[in-house]
Amino acid sequence: MPVESDSRPIIEIRNLDKFFGAFQALADVSLTVNAGERVVICGPSGSGKSTLIRCVNRLEEHSAGELIVDGVELNDETTNIRAVRMEVGMVFQQFNLFPHLTVLENLTVGPIRVRKISRADAEDRARKFLERVHIPEQADKYPAQLSGGQQQRVAIARSLCMEPRIMLFDEPTSALDPEMINEVLDVMVELAGTGMTMVCVTHEMGFARKVADKMVFMEDGRIVETAPPEQFFENPSSRRCRMFLDQILDH
């Protein structure tokens, strides 16, 4: 696997706090992701994992702290936000494909409207990425006609069509039937092989072992443990992390 070991930080999160009303979803979270690095974030539900990666492309606004993505600081400036969003792809738990557009249109609407490239170029690019996620034959269907696994692969391709530098995955397999999880994970493993910077929130520990450079364990809005995968799975330093791993790995 070609690992681009460029140690330049591409996401810098410093002392991030996030409040939903009185509820503190993130407390003093700091994390650095280098270009080409693959980070897997896990932790019990409600621990703030999704909130953290949603802050990275500003689907949530952080309440305090600093967040720099690809050299751009995320603050109230809309131009900054849009610049960052164009470089950061996001895959959602619920796919969120555009139901009124065909698969091909789902993939081209961003490049055409946001990147302003020609329709022909956008379609070439879309077909290339559909090939990459192994469903070139579904280009003219509507999302509702596809299985969950296929929809999620279309969603991955849709993000890739924007040619982002970073891909965020928010529990991409949690809404899938068990037999479809692997087809999505396979695509993600292949993507990891291309040297893409990836931040994944997932409970798929097999996937994490295979691709992660860095494991992050969160609980109650804090990062409890950050470690390379070998150490994380064999010998985690915190008791809570050990318990969590036991719970999800025992089956």
Partner: peptide
């Protein structure tokens, strides 16, 4: 969210 995430205004 999907529209925003691909950079749409």
């Amino acid at each position: 969210e999907a529209a925003k995430s691909i950079g749409m205004s």
